[in-house]
Simulated assay, not measured.
Amino acid sequence: MRGNLLVGAMLTLTFVAGCTSPLKRVDGDAGPAGSPFTSASPPSPSASSAPATGSAGPSAPTTRSATPDAPANSTSRPAAPVSEIRRTDWPNAVIRSLKFCGESDDVVVFRNGSNGLDVPCRILPGGARPVYADFITEEPANSPSTEDALVLVELGNSGAARRQALVPVQLDYTGRVRWARPVILGDAPSPSGDRVMTFVSYRVVRDNAVQATVRKLDGGTETRRWRTVDHAGNWERY
């Protein structure tokens, strides 16, 4: 079974109810519902999230070094390799075993973010982004440890009854085929379909758990957590 090693550098700590818990390295949280969809090309490694600073007044003059002939420290480090799962073109991904989409075929083929059926399945709707971390239990035990992905998928037409799910995706032993594991289901929509639960944000936290902020049918928000309960990868809320 895959160990609980953290992949990459640790993110900043999350503060929940006055306590801190370290997070596994992730690429980003889901965007808020209704934000523009911008992930039209394979994702690149995370960049620094520190905001650029500027001045509202005139630019300050450049300060020269006190030592006229001090050598410039311009040594550069090679860029970290991008994992195969991060190279995924999610709007056009091919994912096996994604039963949530309701297709009879074992393979779901997305094109421009949708599988194109009458009752469509859309991947990363509303500008949501994938989250990357090493969090899926893998067999055999000596299988190489690789990053996995957590992506948001929505089943149903806009303006009608829809339902969302968080889908864990991992690579097979060849490192090329993408497989869906058991999903984390959002709440069922209201009977008339006019109210839908949405995932506002989601992330992988310590002990391979998933934490999400959800907007409920009544419009309120709450934080929920899930953990796996068996080797098949099924989830329970706790």
Rank of each mutant, 00 (worst) to 15 (best):
T53D: 06
A212F: 10
G175T: 13
T67M: 05
V109S: 13
N112W: 12
P91K: 06
R129C: 07
R64V: 05
P144V: 08
P140I: 11
N157L: 07
A141N: 06
G220Q: 13
S65F: 05
D172P: 00
T38F: 07
R111Q: 07
W179H: 10
G34K: 00
S145R: 14
V214C: 06
P91R: 08
D148V: 04
P42Y: 00
A52R: 10
R195W: 12
V7T: 15
F15G: 11
V210L: 05
P81Q: 08
R215C: 08
N157G: 06
Q164E: 10
P58C: 03
W179A: 01
C121E: 06
C19G: 07
P61Y: 05
I123M: 03
A133C: 02
N4F: 05
N208F: 11
G175C: 10
N208C: 11
A30H: 12
E138D: 14
G31A: 13
E138R: 15
Y238W: 05
E222Q: 08
E147R: 12
V109D: 06
T75Y: 02
D172L: 09
T67P: 01
P71C: 02
A141M: 14
P191W: 05
A80G: 04
L98Q: 06
V169H: 04
P36R: 04
E139R: 01
T88A: 13
D218Y: 12
K24T: 14
A40P: 08
L152D: 02
T174Y: 05
L6I: 15
T213F: 01
A33V: 15
L124Y: 07
G193D: 02
Y202Q: 10
P43T: 12
N92R: 06
T63Y: 08
